[in-house]
């Protein structure tokens, strides 16, 4: 698996994990993978919802020790 750019949004209430991901996606290249780290349970739902709506790809999603790891690929 190729290395993903880490978006460390642990402890982020504002702007929050999804907003951090949106900003990072703007700076990423098409095909690039990013992995969001979040301590916000809601991110596990918000991020896949946004990814689906925009048309990017959710590569994987997991939780470890209270930290959610969401790996996404920029599709366009």
């Amino acid at each position: 698996m190729s290395e993903a750019t880490i978006v460390d949004a642990r402890g982020s209430f504002c702007p929050g994990p999804l907003m951090e991901l949106i900003a990072a996606m703007k700076a990423a290249r098409v095909g690039e993978e990013l992995e969001v780290l979040s301590t916000d349970r809601g991110s596990a739902e918000d991020i896949p919802e946004w990814i689906k709506k925009v048309g990017h790809t959710l590569v994987s999603s997991s939780e470890e020790g209270g930290v959610y790891h969401l790996r996404v690929r920029k599709a366009k």
Binding site: F13, C14, P15, M19, I22, G42, D46, E49, W50
Partner: peptide, 10 residues
């Protein structure tokens, strides 16, 4: 607003 509610702070 960019995310799924009207402000980043819940």
């Amino acid at each position: 607003y960019p995310i799924g509610r009207i402000h980043s702070l819940e």
